[in-house]
Simulated scan of single mutants.
Amino acid sequence: MREQFDTLIQAVTRQIADRTLDDTLQAWLNQHYGAQSEWYRDISAACTKGVQDGWMCKHEAQGLKYGRVTKPSDETCGFSVDVVSMQDIRGPHHRHPNGEIDLIMPLTPGARFDGCEAGWKVYGPDSAHCPTVSNGAAHVLYLLPDGKIEFTAQQQ
C-alpha cells in the first residue's frame, strides 16, 4: 500500500513542481486530479487504509491525528507530504512560507475543510490559517514545498 501511495503522490508532484501556488493551480488540480477522478478515489482509499494500518497519522494531540508521511525529496520534487485526520475541529494556526497544497477527502458526506468540499485547496506563499474541518470528519493531505511550515501563537 505504501508503494502505491508514493506512486500516486509522485504522479502529481512531478506535474506541479514548477508551478505557482495560486488559484490557477487549484483549478488545474481539481480538473485533473479532483474528487471525480480515479486518482482521487485511489489516493483517498490509500489514506484511509494507511490510517487504519497505523503508518499514517501516527501522532495525536488536541483531537487531531497527524503525521509526516514523506519528507521532501527528489522523488516528490521537493514536497513533503503530511496527512491529518480531523473531525469538527479547528487546528493550530500556522504559516506557509512557501505555500501549501491541500487535498480534502471527506469521510462524512458534506464535511468541509476551510469551507471547501472534496478536492484541492491551494494557499500561496506567506499565507496562514487555522485549518478547520466542519460538518463531520475528513482526511486532509498537505503538500508543503521544501516541507516548510511555521506554527504560530497567533490565532485568526
Rank of each mutant, 00 (worst) to 15 (best):
D146Q: 14
F151C: 09
P97H: 12
T152N: 06
G119D: 07
F113I: 05
G136Q: 10
F113R: 07
V140I: 08
R112L: 13
F151Y: 15
E150Q: 11
K148A: 13
A138C: 02
T152S: 12
L141N: 01
L103A: 02
G136Y: 12
L103M: 05
I104Q: 00
E100D: 10
M105K: 03
I101P: 04
P145Y: 14
C116F: 13
H139C: 05
P125H: 04
S134M: 10
C116W: 12
I101F: 01
H139R: 05
K148Y: 08
H139I: 00
G147S: 07
Y142D: 12
H96T: 02
C130I: 06
I101N: 01
G110L: 07
P125R: 10
G119E: 02
C130W: 01
Y142K: 13
D102Y: 11
A118C: 06
G136P: 09
A138Q: 01
T108R: 02
V140P: 00
C116M: 12
L103W: 03
I149P: 06
G119N: 04
G115M: 09
S127Q: 09
H129Y: 02
H129T: 08
V122K: 10
K148T: 11
H96W: 12
P131G: 15
S127V: 05
E150R: 05
T108Q: 03
P131T: 10
E100H: 07
G115E: 10
L144A: 15
L141G: 04
H129Q: 05
E100W: 03
G124E: 09
P145S: 12
Y123T: 09
N135D: 15
A138S: 00
P125D: 08
G110C: 02
D146M: 04
L107D: 04
G99V: 14
H96P: 07
G124L: 03
A128C: 12
Y142R: 09
T132W: 07
E100M: 08
M105T: 08
G115K: 04
E150G: 08
H129W: 04
Y123W: 15
Y123H: 13
W120F: 05
P106Y: 02
L103K: 03
V122S: 14
C130T: 09
M105L: 05
G119W: 02
L107Q: 07
I104G: 00
C116K: 15
E100R: 07
C130R: 04
L144V: 11
I149L: 14
G99M: 13
T132F: 01
R112A: 06
